[in-house]
Structure formats: C-alpha cells, structure tokens
Amino acid sequence: MVAEGSTIARRALGRQLQKLRKKADMSQNRAAKVLGISPQTMARLEDGLSVPSTNDLYMNALCDHYGVSDEKRRAILAMAREARVSAKNGGGWWRPHIDRPANDFEPRAFLDHAARRLTAWHVILLPEIVQTPDYRRAVAWTTWPHLPTDELDNRIERVAERQRRLDDSTFTVEILLSEAAIREEWGGPSVMAEQRRFLVEIGHRPNVSIRVVPFRTRGHLGALVGSFSLLEFPLLPHTRFVERPIVHVEEYTGDLYLERSAEVDRYKAAISELRRVALSESDSSARILAISDEYEN
C-alpha cells in the first residue's frame, strides 16, 4: 500500500528496519522471504514508500528474525502504528510535546540523520544543531523548569548526538539568523560568550554557512514567516526515488511538519528572500564577534 499523507513515520520506520536487518547480517531477499513478500516490496518498505500491514504480524516476524529486544520491539510496533495513522492526514503532521508514549521516536532526530541538507531561519532561539550544551541547558530549564536532572541531561545528549552530523562533510548546513538570536541572553554572559564564539568557529567549516540578518534590514519576509527549518534528502538507497523535502516549524507546545509541495515552495521562496538580505559569511562572523565584545565589555 502506498500512502498519500505524511511520510515521516514510515520513512523513519523503513530506515530503522534497514538498520536492524544489517545488524542481523541478513540480506534484503532473505528478509523478504521471512515475510512472504517480494524483494521489491521489501525495498519499498525499507525506503519508506509503503505503509506496514494493518496488523503487527509482519513487524513481529521481522523483530523475531532480527533478534531485537522487547523494548526495541515495542518501539518498532508503535512506529508502524503511527505510520499507518499519519498516512491518512494529508501531508501535514502535528506532533504535541505532551502525552507522548515512552517508546515514541523523535521525528527531528530521524530527519537530521537522514537529510543531506538543512537550511534554517531562526528569529530568537538559535537552532539546536548549533547550540552549545550550556545554552541548551538554559533554554531547557526555562521551557521545562520542573524537569528532573537526568531527563534534562538526556535531552542535551540527544541534541549533542544530532550535532555530530556537522562532522559529516556530505551534510550541508545553512543557518540564517536574525540579529535578535545573537543578542538574546540565555544562561548569562559567559554562556553567551561561549555560544557566540562557537557560532563563528562552526561557521568556518566548509559544509556550514552562518549568516545574520541585521536589525537595520527593513520589512524583510523573515519577520512574518517565523522560525523554521527546511530539510532535503538524498536519493533513496533501493528505489532511487527522491524523498519529499520537509519543513519543520517548532512551536511551544509541539512541532509541525509540512510536506505538501505548495507549502514547501513558499518556505523555499522565503529562504531566497532571506539570503538576499543577509550579511555575507565573513561580515556575519564580524557582526557576531562585535556583539560579543559589546556584551562582554
């Protein structure tokens, strides 16, 4: 069955199944025989082009042959059920932060791992992928003031895992920032000084671009659009199809993921406008360092 709605859950499930199959040292043809399906159907399942069967027999069979833990099995079954539900919602997906089950998966972690390119525009907060641990901790304490320390540490570590993608030269990152995001204080002067230095340092990597839209820029579209990220993906490994790009809009109570072409195209147009008004990379680094000196002196 080919789904027409949101693709995120089934794409995440497909990559997870492929990862487990390889860990079990099983060929795709052999896995297909286990399920009694064709290798082509198995390829489409792993590429996230098909929705799992309406019952859990297939997923349980795969988990048995892959030798996964009970915890991992519960996560796979939950992901398969979510793939079936999200396939019906028409190409947009709202994910509330609250009331998520313990075996839930994080769409953003999957997307960052799978993407070949990330383009982000942020107005107040810096994108997680370029946040220092202390900056992230300060934001988390404000967002979840009663969060247990161990859970807070887990959240920070998950962000750190996503940031490791910056070490992959095939992963391209373009960050467009309002000057307000550079000036907003989180965690105190020393935290922000370290954060600003990190922005300049990371911006020198060949696969990372950081540019600032200064306050003096008048009437630019970024003030109306709000913060968002555009994720673009490589060809699928088996079918060689092109995956849909996804726009991620992070809100206070949850995350919105957009996949319809008309919606994504509007955000792409906004990115083009922001690129037009942003400072160059070198001028942006100079602006960030000047702001850092201004706050430290």
Rank of each mutant, 00 (worst) to 15 (best):
Lys19Val: 05
Val247Thr: 05
Ala290Gly: 07
Ala43Phe: 01
Ala75Pro: 01
Tyr66Arg: 09
Thr41Tyr: 08
Asp150Arg: 14
Gln163Arg: 13
Asp283Thr: 01
Ala140Trp: 01
Ser178Arg: 00
Gly48Asp: 03
Ala290Lys: 12
Asp47Arg: 04
Thr149Arg: 14
His204Ile: 04
Ser38Arg: 11
Arg287Thr: 09
Val264Pro: 02
Arg108Ala: 02
Gly5Val: 04
Asp167Tyr: 09
Asp167Pro: 01
Thr41Met: 12
Lys22Leu: 14
Glu82His: 07
Ala12Glu: 06
Ala78Asp: 12
Asp104Pro: 02
Arg164Gln: 14
Arg164Ile: 05
Ser280Thr: 14
Ser292Arg: 10
Pro206Gly: 11
Pro245His: 02
Pro96Gly: 09
Arg11Val: 09
Phe198Ala: 09
His113Thr: 14
Ile129Trp: 00
Trp186Tyr: 15
Gly222Met: 03
Ser229Pro: 01
Leu125Trp: 00
His113Arg: 14
Arg165Val: 10
Phe198Arg: 07
Ala109Arg: 06
Ala87Arg: 01
Asp47Trp: 04
Arg116Tyr: 02
Ser69Lys: 09
Ile182Gln: 00
Arg276Tyr: 08
Glu184Ala: 07
Ile76Pro: 01
Leu111Pro: 00
Asp153Asn: 15
Ile271Cys: 06
Val247Met: 05
Leu289Gly: 00
Gly92Ile: 07
Arg84Lys: 07
Leu224Ser: 13
His220Cys: 08
Gln40Thr: 15
Ala262Lys: 13
Pro214Val: 07
Lys88Ser: 12
Pro245Thr: 05
Ile246Met: 06
Phe233Trp: 04
Glu174Asp: 10
Arg84Ile: 02
Gly14Trp: 02
Ser38His: 12
Asp104Asn: 13
Thr172Ile: 15
Leu45Ala: 05
Pro206Leu: 10
Asp70Val: 08
Glu243Tyr: 00
Glu46His: 07
Arg30Ala: 12
Pro101Ala: 12
Glu185Tyr: 04
Glu71Leu: 12
Leu57His: 12
Thr132Cys: 04
Phe110Leu: 05
Glu151Tyr: 06
Pro148Ser: 13
Ile175Asp: 00
Leu126Tyr: 03
Asn154Gly: 08
Arg155Val: 01
Thr132Glu: 03
Ser261Asn: 08
Arg244Trp: 05
Lys19Met: 10
Glu71Thr: 14
Ser53Trp: 07
Arg81Trp: 00
Lys88Val: 05
Arg216Val: 11
Glu294His: 11
Leu77Ile: 15
Ala223Arg: 15
Phe228Thr: 00
Ala262Asn: 09
Pro245Leu: 04
Gln195Pro: 07
Pro101Lys: 09
Arg211Ser: 01
Glu273Cys: 06
Met192Val: 07
Arg158Ala: 11
Pro214Tyr: 03
Pro189Trp: 08
Gly90Ile: 08
Gln28Ser: 11
Ile8Pro: 00
Pro127Val: 09
Phe198Asn: 05
Arg197Tyr: 06
Arg158Asp: 06
Asp293Gly: 09
Ala78Arg: 13
Pro214Met: 04
Leu274Trp: 00
Arg30Val: 11
Ala270Gly: 06
Thr149His: 14
Asp283Arg: 05
Arg81His: 10
Lys22Met: 12
Leu111Cys: 05
Met42Glu: 04
Arg117Val: 08
